[in-house]
Amino acid sequence: LQLFIKTLTGKTSTVEMEPSDTIENLKAKIQDKEGIPPDQQRLIFAGKQLEDGRTLSDYNIQKESTLHLVL
């Protein structure tokens, strides 16, 4: 599924993920695209901070969801 990652600067990146992927996997993919180390990334979806060990489906993240990346 395609996700949009929006940064505080207003920049939006697109990443392709599976519902079974963990937040950790997602942060690794963001690191590949943006060069931001996972330990500096905080991802927010629906007002919640996402935890590394959980999966996208745990948070009911659907295709074309927008996640907010806070550093």
Rank of each mutant, 00 (worst) to 15 (best):
F45N: 02
K11W: 13
E18R: 14
K6I: 14
Q31V: 04
K63G: 14
L43P: 00
L50I: 04
Y59E: 02
N60M: 08
S13V: 15
N60W: 05
D52H: 06
K63Y: 10
L69S: 00
K33A: 12
N60T: 05
E34T: 15
L50H: 00
K11T: 10
Q31S: 12
F4N: 07
T14N: 06
K27Q: 02
Q31E: 10
I23L: 04
S57A: 14
V15T: 03
K11L: 10
K48R: 12
D39Y: 12
K48S: 08
Q2M: 14
L8W: 15
L67F: 04
E51V: 07
L67V: 13
L26S: 00
D39C: 10
T55P: 06
L1R: 03
A46C: 08
D58Q: 07
D52K: 04
I36T: 06
T14C: 08
I5C: 03
Q31H: 14
A46Q: 14
I44F: 15
I61P: 02
T66C: 05
F45Y: 13
K11I: 11
N60Y: 06
I30R: 01
I5A: 01
T14Q: 10
L71S: 08
K33F: 10
E16I: 13
D32F: 11
T55C: 04
V70Y: 14
R54F: 13
L69E: 00
E51A: 08
D39E: 13
Q31I: 03
I44Y: 15
T9L: 11
V70A: 07
L50Q: 00
V15N: 01
V70N: 05
S20V: 05
L56R: 00
E51C: 08
I44E: 07
D52V: 06
T14W: 11
R42C: 11
Q2D: 04
K11G: 10
T66Q: 06
D32I: 13
T55I: 08
S57D: 08
L50F: 01
K6T: 11
Q49N: 10
R54E: 04
S57L: 11
E16A: 09
Y59Q: 03
G35S: 05
P19D: 09
E64S: 12
R42T: 14
Q41S: 04
T14F: 11
L26K: 00
K63I: 06
Q2W: 11
L67Q: 01
E34Y: 15
I5H: 00
Q2K: 15
I5M: 02
D52E: 09
N60G: 14
Q2G: 04
G35L: 04
M17G: 05
G53A: 10
M17L: 07
I30D: 01
G53F: 11
L43W: 06
I23Q: 00
L56H: 00
Q49W: 14
V15H: 05
R54S: 06
T22D: 03
L1W: 10
I36D: 02
L56C: 00
P37W: 06
L3H: 01
Q40R: 13
G47T: 04
I5Q: 00
H68C: 11
G47K: 04
F4G: 02
E18T: 10
P19V: 08
K48P: 01
L71A: 08
L8F: 12
I23V: 12
E24G: 13
D32R: 12
L67C: 01
L1H: 04
E64D: 14
E24F: 14
S57K: 12
S20L: 09
D58P: 00
K29G: 02
R42Y: 11
R42N: 10
K48V: 14
R42K: 12
F4Q: 07
G35C: 04
V15L: 11
N60V: 04
N25T: 13
D52C: 05
T55Y: 06
Q62W: 08
G47M: 04
Q41K: 02
D39K: 11
E51W: 05
L69V: 06
Q31Y: 15
L26W: 00
Q41F: 15
I36K: 03
R42A: 07
R42L: 13
K29F: 06
S20Y: 12
L8A: 13
I61M: 06
S65Q: 07
P38K: 15
I44A: 04
S65R: 03
E18I: 09
T12D: 04
E64P: 05
K29M: 10
Q41T: 05
Q62C: 05
L71P: 08
V70I: 13
Q2V: 15
G47D: 06
I44M: 12
D21S: 09
K29C: 05
E51T: 06
I61Y: 02
K48C: 06
I30Q: 00
I5N: 01
G53M: 08
K11C: 09
K63W: 09
K27F: 02
T66G: 03
S65K: 03
R54L: 11
T22F: 08
F4M: 07
L3E: 01
L56T: 01
Q62L: 11
F4L: 08
T55D: 02
Y59D: 00
Q31G: 09
L43F: 07
T7V: 09
I61D: 02
P19Q: 08
A28M: 13
A28L: 14
T66V: 14
